[in-house]
Amino acid sequence: MATRTRRPERREEPLSRQRIVEAAIALLDTAGEGALTFRALAERLATGPGAIYWHVTGKDELLNAATDAVIATMTADTTSTTSTAAATPQEAIRTLALGVFDAIDAHPWIGTQLARAPSQSPLLRVFEHLGRHIQTLGVPHPAQFTAASALLNYILGVGGQNAANARGHHQHTSRTEFLDTTATSWANLDPDEYPFTRNVADQLRHHDDRTEFLAGLDLILTGITTRHSPIDPTPS
């Protein structure tokens, strides 16, 4: 009687902080922040909660690590390419801003985390890169903090609102249907009380979120460059 050769068991990849963070990101993307528990994460990783606590002390640290992982990847992708290196400061800021916008769109929970922990590294990565581009733009030192903060607040505000809108209306209807319904309600508002809102209702109906985001960003950049023209280092 022939004996059956026993196949060696497949060896599992060792549990690491990186694996835990990657699993947390996947769980956050599919089920949201409320579903991120160490028990759910342990089931996904086929381990016990205690093994996870060996690498991460709690949910706050895990959320920060997950946010930092996404933002670090995004900033690396948007600042290390040859085209970005050769870009103007304005183009570099647009690339960075759009990278954050798209990251929040793909991972809606990131917007909340960035706003919740302004002193943590994920937000500081974005602020640091914005600040460097502001310096390269030639903005005087006393105005650099205000310029970088205005850009950061715009990026987080619009990106977070866009993600919130997507979560809200996609549960029951498509984006097109949602915008059509909202635009129709705007068009039917009282003409004496809401003349402007009625007038732009069709623009709401057909607008593109990313295009409008970049248009608003350009308004801020134009204001910064107009008010703070580059300093000429050459003595007169």
Rank of each mutant, 00 (worst) to 15 (best):
Arg4Ile: 15
Arg6Lys: 11
Arg10Ala: 14
Leu15Met: 14
Ser16Pro: 01
Arg19Gln: 15
Arg19Leu: 09
Glu22Arg: 07
Ala23Leu: 13
Ala24Asp: 09
Asp29Cys: 05
Arg44Gly: 05
Leu45Asp: 09
Trp54Ala: 13
Trp54Ile: 00
Val56Gln: 05
Val56Pro: 07
Thr57Trp: 00
Thr57Glu: 07
Leu63Asn: 02
Leu63Pro: 02
Asn64Thr: 12
Asn64Trp: 00
Thr73Gln: 14
Met74Gln: 06
Thr75Ala: 08
Thr75Pro: 01
Asp77Cys: 00
Thr78Ser: 11
Thr79Arg: 03
Ser83Pro: 00
Thr88Asp: 03
Pro89Arg: 08
Gln90Trp: 04
Leu96Glu: 07
Ala97His: 10
Ala103His: 11
Ala106Val: 00
Arg116Asp: 02
Arg116His: 12
Ala117Met: 04
Ser119Val: 11
Ser119Glu: 09
Gln120Cys: 07
Gln120Met: 03
Pro122Gln: 00
Val126Gln: 02
Glu128Lys: 12
Glu128Asn: 13
Leu130Gly: 09
Gly131Met: 08
Arg132Val: 15
Arg132Cys: 07
Ala143Gly: 03
Ser149Arg: 08
Val158Ile: 11
Asn162Pro: 05
Ala164Phe: 02
Ala166Cys: 00
Gln171Trp: 02
Arg175Cys: 07
Thr182Val: 07
Ala183Tyr: 06
Asp190Asn: 14
Phe196His: 11
Asn199Arg: 15
Asn199Val: 01
Asp202His: 15
Gln203Leu: 15
Gln203Gly: 07
Arg205Pro: 08
His207Asn: 13
Asp209Ser: 13
Phe213Arg: 01
Thr222Phe: 11
Thr226Glu: 08
Arg227Val: 02
Arg227Ser: 10
His228Val: 03
His228Cys: 10
Pro235Thr: 01
